[in-house]
Design a protein around this nucleic acid. Structure first.
Length: 710
DNA sequence: TCAAAACTGATTTTT
DNA sequence: TCAGTTTTGA
């Protein structure tokens, strides 16, 4: 049996799959068959009878990979996926919290706040505390709260040393109180609550520790401190943790991921088995050589080098456009050629560092009539009309959900204006009750009748929902709330009506795969915001950020905007950790390509309404030149000297003929080397801004800088 | 209550 | 530049 499972694996992969029940770290390079190893390991453990399906827990970051894992396992073994504890960190924590909601101190129907709902809740807290929006931006407070939660700290555990930090802590404290009062949990709360549940309740902890003999973790390099601490609690003396990850693909430090967990894991658990998967099954040799060369410039590595049996393949093509427009033009024409030669459009990806870059490429694609698809837009459950509908459903499940109450109390408009709402808020605060309770107590003044009608309507929904099937609840809610009518009467509401109907479908399919349960449906809606865009699988060019491309692969990849300041991004290029993360991002980008890789850059680019003049990315220099083929002019890295580089016509207002410098001009500085003039102020006696290849952007005094045009 | 006007700020993002 | 938000005014 085991032989059949591992027959298709290479020796390292097979060794990983058949490791004894002890802690193990699998360093799996890009394209090395990581998911295969993880799922085959699970199948092997089950089919050799070492564990029963209930004895393992496998955790991932995204619903997509959780689903992928489940479907691969069930393809290998006849299993009921429902009984398996395979899911995302948040999904599994939610599952545990629902089972033990009493011990966790949560109401049975606790709602899950997504990012934007959390922000709304924080805004309310700040308003209540009378904290100034300018001094305490809600976004910053949100980061502050989530940051502390992700390090396992409650408001009471946070240090405050001055007035400002004391106010922040107060906001955190008040936010905690508000969430508890309303019976809601944000994303990081799911993890923290679950962590606290396991640490405070020994019986529960021991139950799960004994139950889960094998804990398997995917994308281990992306775990944050709290997730690691949770794993540590979950794994008892008899459990084995099987962690798979790639430190070179750690690109989420900015949102709390801690690569250090990989090193800590080895020491904390005295890991005996470290296996490297270095054989790559995805890319041609030149592409891998480029990736290896780039990543070797990082110092903080566990060490790994990809190799392949495939041939070197084609050289990596480099194109330098005079402008972002020209760059986009090139990409589109080249992609059309590939398609004409028989490559499927969906096998071609155009990647960029930041979303703002997609516009001009989209424009060029649109003009050329090439179908494309951009990842990263609004998702189904994030749409306005769906949010409204879900808010009604949440009031049915739990009327003290103030977020939901505020969202729909006057939507569709029913004459409960700002004043009436404020009166309810004041009253609730005074009585220490929920908005719903305050509303039930009735209002005085003009809004009273309208409010009574609203209360009556919600009560009717709650009464009718009892015992109904999920689809019928949704239909009834859409009818009673007037949401559907409202959008039907809106001349631009066609798509929204269609989406609401799609929500009914979602409820229907949900029933078939889970129990008929409003609470479960609402959790599902919060934890799985749905596909990134409609038409996900049509044959179209794929446009996305490098981050979004992680885990995907394509026949041909265009990596655009390889300029200093963009990639590496200027906000990250200044400290070493930031730069190393940018470099890992570059590594991820390169390793997406199977056969063909294009690297492109633009000498000038429109950014924030201004033309910026860039210098080639240092990452281009880090690729061995023999792997590259320059497609146009005599481009040479970080030096435009060999080419007839004609600076784009500078606007007359911005030229400074006195010293012969102009925007877009290439200059040399005795200390900083080669750079491009990007801005100036104050004429001949003033300053110029120069973007240097090695030292980044600097302001220099024209009179002293000794800038020589090159 | 709504629409126009003014203002702001701008990597990367899943759950 | 441009989209998203907040303020203003009818």
């Amino acid at each position: 049996m085991s032989h059949a499972l591992t027959a298709k694996l290479n020796p390292q992969q097979a060794a990983a799959v058949e490791l004894p029940a002890e802690h193990a770290l699998i360093l799996a390079g890009a394209g090395s068959g990581k998911t295969s190893v993880l799922t085959t390991r699970i199948a092997w453990l089950l089919s050799t009878g070492q564990i029963s399906p209930s004895g393992l827990l496998a955790v991932t970051f995204t619903n997509k990979s959780a689903k992928e894992m489940l479907s691969r396992i069930t393809a290998m073994l006849p299993l009921n996926p429902r009984g398996l504890w395979v899911g995302t960190f948040h999904g599994l924590c939610n599952r545990m919290l629902r089972l033990h909601h009493r011990d966790a101190g949560l109401p049975e129907a606790f709602a899950i706040l997504d990012q934007s709902e959390q922000l709304g809740a924080i805004k309310r807290v700040l308003k209540f505390l009378g904290l100034d929006d300018d001094k305490y931006p809600p976004r910053a407070v949100q980061n502050y709260i989530n940051g502390h939660k992700e390090n396992g700290r409650r408001a009471g555990d946070v240090d405050a040393f001055d007035d400002y930090s004391r106010q922040l802590r107060l906001a955190y404290e008040e936010y905690e109180k508000q969430c508890n009062r309303e019976g809601v949990a944000d994303f990081s709360e799911l993890l923290l609550r679950c962590y606290e549940l396991l640490s405070h309740k020994p019986e529960i902890r021991q139950h799960y520790q004994q139950r889960f003999a094998h804990v398997l973790v995917d994308e281990f390099q992306d775990t944050n401190r709290l997730q690691y601490a949770w794993l540590k609690l979950l794994a008892g003396n008899n459990s084995a943790i099987f962690a798979v990850g790639d430190d070179d693909q750690s690109i989420y430090a900015f949102r709390g991921a801690n690569v250090g967990n990989m090193v800590d894991f080895q020491t904390d658990f005295a890991v005996k088995h470290v296996i490297r998967l270095e054989q790559n099954y995805r890319s041609h040799g030149n592409i891998l050589d480029a990736a290896n060369a780039v990543i070797s410039h990082n110092t903080q590595r566990l060490g790994k080098e990809l190799w392949t049996q495939a041939s070197a393949g084609e050289p990596i093509r480099v194109f330098e456009g005079a402008s972002d427009f020209e760059e986009a033009q090139f990409i589109v024409e080249e992609a059309q050629t590939l398609i004409r030669d028989g490559m499927a459009s969906s096998e071609i990806a155009i990647l960029y560092r930041s979303n703002a870059q997609s516009r001009i490429i989209e424009h060029a694609l649109f003009s050329a009539g090439v179908p494309y698809r951009v990842y990263g837009g609004l998702r189904f459950f994030e749409r306005q009309e769906i949010k409204h509908a879900l808010a009604y459903l949440r009031l049915i499940a739990n009327p003290s959900d103030d977020n939901a109450f505020l969202r729909v109390v006057n939507f569709p408009t029913r004459g409960i204006g700002l004043k009436s709402v404020e009166a309810i808020v004041d009253r609730a605060r005074l009585e220490g009750c929920s908005l719903w309770q305050a509303a039930c107590a009735g209002a005085s003044g003009r809004g009273a009748a309208a409010l009574a009608k609203f209360v009556h309507m919600i009560e009717a929904m709650r009464n009718q929902a009892d015992g109904l099937a999920m689809t019928d609840i949704v239909t009834m809610m859409l009818d009673l709330s007037g949401l559907l009518t409202h959008y039907q009467n809106d001349k631009e509401g066609e798509e929204r009506v269609a989406n609401l109907e799609e929500l009914i479908n979602a409820a229907a399919t949900f029933i078939s795969e889970d129990e008929n349960n409003l609470i479960a449906f609402l959790s599902h809606a919060s934890l799985e915001a749905g596909d990134h865009q409609a038409g996900a699988h049509e044959d179209a060019l794929q446009l996305m950020t490098v981050h979004a491309a992680k885990g995907l692969e394509f026949h041909a990849v265009f990596l655009s905007g390889l300029e200093e300041g963009l990639f590496p991004h200027e906000n990250s290029a200044n400290d070493r950790l930031g730069l190393e993360e940018e470099r890992r991002l570059m590594y991820v980008a390169i390793t997406r390509a199977r056969q063909r890789l294009y690297l492109s850059l633009a000498q000038s680019r429109m950014l924030h309404g201004q033309t910026r003049y860039g210098v080639a990315s240092r990452f281009l220099d880090e690729i061995p030149q023999e792997l590259l083929k320059y497609l146009n002019r005599g481009y040479a890295p970080s030096s435009y000297s060999s080419a007839a580089y004609v600076p784009p016509v500078a606007s007359p207002k911005k030229t400074t003929p006195e010293h012969g410098l102009s925007i877009g001009m290439k200059v040399e500085h005795p200390k900083f080397g080669i750079g491009i003039v990007t801005d100036h102020e104050g004429g001949a006696t003033g300053n110029v801004q120069v973007n240097f290849a090695q030292f980044g952007s600097k302001w220099l005094a024209v009179a002293y800088a000794k800038l020589k045009p090159v």
